[in-house]
Amino acid sequence: MPDPKRPLLDPAVLAKLGTLKLRVRAVTEGVLSGLHKSPHHGQSVEFAEHKEYAPGDEIRHIDWKAYGKFDKYYVKRFEQETNLRAYLVVDASGSMGYRGDPGRLTKLEYASALAASLGYLLVRQQDAAGLVLVQGQVAGAIPPRASASHVTPVVEALEAARPQGETRLAAAVDWIIENAPRRSSVVVFSDLFDQDERIVKKLAQLGRRKHEVTIFHVLDPAELEFPFDDPTLFLSMEDGRQVEAHGRDVRKGYLEVLGRWLEETKRTAAEADVDYALCRTDRPLDEVLVPFLARRERSAA
């Protein structure tokens, strides 16, 4: 049911918006109008810490007052440099192309809208946002930057992504371990239908490297409810497997298996201190983003 006060945040309405840019604008405007008092104002220009000068540091950043007091060169480090570096890991595997209803967004579209909106919001508050696109392997990556112009390639890359290949989030984990030198926030958008059943634990490895990991578990309502009644030939979206089953016959078993899996995923994420949010693609995006941003704010404080 679309919220009459924020119609543009309804996924059904977003699905009618032709491009991801429009969707991002709609989402972020909605989110920002809902945030009333921005908790992010002025944060990016505040002083953060001193560092003893070393050759190669910017001379203009030497704190001359500290030199006068301690007779040593100290370089000022600003908040900007210690701000969040966020890697938006978007699963663009074949299974993400699913939507149970033609009026809804596909999981990839939903995840892209979430990721792009989050990227925009992060950049807007001087955080850096990068993108890692996974399609069996890392199909594309954009390093995190905090400039406003950086959002455009992220959005374009997401818009150009087509669902294909297998789900292999481990490739993204390896890539981030290799390419993220600093503590970063890793935000994963995926349905987690990974060949590796222990993928959440794998993602939790990033936590041990001081990265902050958040999983947006994107699932279609049809995957959660299994609304099939008739004899159906189910075709895999990532490989050639297929199975014939009577929807009515397997629904109960399917929902049991799915429920166990979701419970297991949630529990594993909690044990590994991984932030986890289940996102139905019929759920308004702000209901996903605002709690996440609020949590972020609390943890930053």
Binding site: G94, Y98, K107, E223, P231, F234, L235, S236, L258
Partner: peptide
């Protein structure tokens, strides 16, 4: 005849 339906959670 069963209806072919792509489904990710196979």
């Amino acid at each position: 005849r069963p209806r072919p339906t792509p489904f990710p959670a196979i």
